[in-house]
């Protein structure tokens, strides 16, 4: 049971991470259009975190053994 719980927590955490990253992207997009320097520094961080979160989600998925179909 413990492994299943870990898996579920992991999947939801990474999904949350993705959603937060997307929120960051959309919230900063108007600032980016206005050339705000801080937003320029961070915009790629949000996009990068979005991709990395999905990568970690896949890692959890592989842990579940489902990929060894």
């Amino acid at each position: 049971m413990k492994k299943v719980q870990l898996l579920l927590v992991g999947l939801f955490m990474t999904l949350l991470g993705e959603l937060l990253s997307v929120a960051g992207i959309y919230l900063s997009s108007q600032l980016i259009i206005n050339n705000d320097p801080l937003a320029r520094l961070l915009s790629g961080v949000f996009i990068g975190l979005l991709l990395i979160s999905f990568g970690i989600m896949i890692a959890f998925y592989r842990l579940s053994g489902s990929s060894e179909a």
Binding site: L11, T14, L15, E18, L19, S21, V22, I25, Y26, S29, I32, S43, I47, L50, L51, S53, F54, M57, I58, Y61
Partner: peptide
């Protein structure tokens, strides 16, 4: 979950 994750990524990348 994986499919959902992929969709969120696409949605997030679309805007920039």
């Amino acid at each position: 979950m994986i499919a959902l994750g992929a969709l969120v990524v696409i949605g997030g990348l679309a805007k920039p």
